[in-house]
Write a protein that binds this DNA or RNA. Structure first.
Length: 592
RNA sequence: CGGGGUGUGGCGCAGCUUGGUAGCGCGCUCCGUUCGGGUCGGAGAGGUCCCCGGUUCAAAUCCGGGCACCCCGACCA
């Protein structure tokens, strides 16, 4: 909301130069008396995440069931502000808003092979037709594109919506951070070719940067995994937070990647002089790398671990240094879907316990070797219980496919600069994804090019979770008293606390100030409740965390000054009554 | 789906081991008091003790089954 004071520039330095004031009205100012604002002194006992506790205590949301939340009026105001920002930025890159159904005929999902996914809610209508509740809308958008797009002249297009997604999560958690029903802004780009897709993708990336900046979020864009569904590129927008479920690796020079994608320069141990042939030695009872470290006195990086997984095509032996963990998704890109092998299976294939496995002398089993193993010589299992081998060298004593299959660990080198990587938990608030032609070819979304040749539309999909963005902002902005909002997404701009009688002199003054502030374009919450103690009003105001609090009481009239508190610093200042509304407007404009 | 935990008034909890009239704090209503940081005092309202079954003269409490919610893990377009 604009502060329409002439001559007061918007001095926010944390937002980009092209920052724009939201133009649409956002519900305006309200008087609190008679309104629903259900605050709680204690958080619900089962709440763990800070955002969960605060959103419930501050009366923003209420839980209906696991992973199902209702937005209360003030929570909805913040959600609407985020949605308004997203809508403006999507419109600004030429995307058009649509609205697609939540319920879909199952057969469309059958066409793309996504019917029956674990997280999909399925149901039947009264005629017995199979229906699903949409967990995303690639199928539906593409279905429409197939019917409406004819010519290369119709392209490119970007379409978006705010619509409820239904996902039967195996485990809803952390309040609003992982839920089973949520509104998503999802957009889809339709292009003639991959060059067009790249342009649409970049346009979305620009819009997303502006959106998260304007929402006041601390965020980082990272490379992400395109998963089993292919696609040629993907990025995620991550808000750093200790409660985040994802992990990213960051380097000091701007390198940032989801841990699923991150690569690193491993720290090299010091190897002894070149070894002779592998030499067996007894290691009775040793089953883990830790035990082997103790027994040999060597660092884990001098030991090689052998991990067996099972694919549709049989067992795969993965070999890594002792300090590394096998990264399932990296291995999956090479060998496909897999599961850990059972000890009985391992004995069948290798004739030894899992603790004594190694790659030497193995035949008929696919071997994948982490690239670190190609340097130096290692202690490995001998495939005999209680026996290991010393001085095993890749390429001489065993062989296998070389790949990066290890999970990055903190402190290893950034792949760009070599500087140490930092691992950080993050909340995923958005993603952008180059889909390619997976959905358009399955659903027949084609067009005629300038030569009259039929071509397949090239697509991208782009998501943002407004409620998750809201929760992430609260995870990042809070103190012991409550929420500390970025001003752009606070439920109100100013919290006007009246102490005393509405009909008394201070009440009359507060009423006038309420009108003045509102006329200047600020959205004001006027706490005009009679019979509520000052302390209680202050405590509740800090819990809700509106950026500016103004207190009007008997000290205020007739001569002032007016007491103003910025929520973020919780420092009180005094403003003369003359021109008070304008001064507050200026103060608000300078806030982050 | 595996492991752990919890279900008692709107919220937070005690009571359960050792069966016997259901309690405390906050909130809510009323009276008085106070009136710029969750005042103080008094009087009240409000509960199928998650559900079903069993044992018992008697079950919040013991036993069996189920459900819900939370946490850890697995999973997560």
């Amino acid at each position: 909301m604009a502060c329409r004071l002439p001559g007061v520039a918007d001095s926010d330095t944390s937002t980009p130069a092209d920052w724009k004031m939201p133009s649409a009205p956002r519900g305006g100012s309200i008087r609190l008396s008679g309104r629903l604002w259900p605050t709680l002194r204690d958080p619900p006992a089962d709440a763990e995440a800070i955002s969960h506790k605060l959103m419930v205590r501050a009366g923003l949301v209420r839980q209906l069931a696991s992973g199902l939340y209702s937005f209360m009026p003030f929570g909805l105001r913040s959600l609407h502000r985020i949605i308004a920002i997203i809508r403006e930025e999507m419109d600004a890159i030429g995307a058009q808003e649509m609205l697609l159904p939540v319920m879909h005929p199952a057969e469309i999902w059958e066409t793309t092979g996504r019917l029956g996914l674990d997280e999909q809610f399925q149901l039947e209508d009264r005629a017995g037709r199979a229906m699903v509740l949409g967990m995303t809308h690639e199928e539906i958008i593409t279905w429409h594109a197939a019917r409406e797009i004819r010519s290369y002249r119709d392209l490119p297009q970007s379409w978006y919506q705010f619509q409820t997604k239904m996902r039967d999560e195996p485990r809803a958690k952390s309040g609003m951070l992982r839920v089973r029903e949520f509104i998503m802004k999802d957009s889809y780009s339709l292009d003639r070719d991959t060059a067009g897709l790249d342009a649409s993708y970049d346009a979305h990336a620009g819009a997303y940067a502006r959106i998260f900046d304007r929402c006041g979020l601390d965020w980082v864009m990272v490379e992400s995994d395109t998963g089993m569904m292919g696609g040629s590129g993907a990025h995620e927008y991550m808000a750093p937070s200790p409660v985040g479920e994802d992990m990213i690796a960051r380097g000091p020079t701007g390198y940032a990647a989801n841990i699923e994608m991150a690569t690193s320069v491993a720290i090299e141990p010091e190897f002894d002089a070149a070894p002779g042939t592998p030499e067996p030695f007894d290691t009775p009872g040793i089953e883990t790398i830790d035990q082997l470290v103790t027994a040999t006195g060597l660092v884990a990086a001098r030991l090689a671990k052998s991990v067996v997984v099972v694919t549709d095509d049989g067992p795969v032996l993965a070999v890594l240094r002792g300090e590394h963990q096998l990264h399932d998704k990296k291995l999956a890109r090479l060998v496909g879907m897999h599961r850990p092998a059972q000890p009985e299976e391992i004995r069948g294939w290798f004739g030894a316990d899992p603790g004594s496995l190694g790659p030497v002398g193995i035949e008929g089993v696919r071997i994948v070797v982490d690239e670190t193993i190609t340097r130096g010589h290692y202690i490995t299992g001998a495939n005999r219980d209680g026996v290991h081998l010393r001085g095993v060298v890749f390429g001489r004593d065993f062989t296998g496919e070389i790949a990066d299959i290890r999970e990055v660990i903190a402190g290893e080198g950034c792949p760009i600069s070599g500087e140490p990587l930092v691992l950080e938990p993050v909340i995923e608030v958005g993603n952008i994804f180059k889909l390619g032609t997976k959905y358009s070819s399955a659903l027949g979304a084609r067009y005629l090019d300038a030569e009259g040749t039929e071509q397949t539309i090239v697509m991208g999909s782009y998501g943002i979770g407004p409620a998750r963005t809201l929760a992430a902002a609260i995870e990042q902005g809070n103190d012991e008293s409550g929420i500390v909002w970025p001003r752009a997404i606070a439920p109100f701009d100013v919290h006007l606390v009246l102490i005393g009688d509405v009909d008394g002199p201070s009440g009359v003054y507060a009423e006038g100030l309420f009108g003045e502030l509102s006329d200047l374009g600020l959205e004001v919450l006027f706490d005009d409740r009679p019979g509520v103690k000052p302390g209680e009003k202050f405590v509740e105001a800090e819990l809700l965390g509106v950026p500016i609090r103004i207190t009007v009481g008997k000290r205020t009239v007739p001569d002032g000054p007016l007491e103003v508190q910025v929520r973020r610093e919780r420092e009180k200042s005094e403003v003369p009554l003359a021109g008070a509304a304008e001064a507050i407007c200026a103060l608000w404009s300078a806030l982050p």
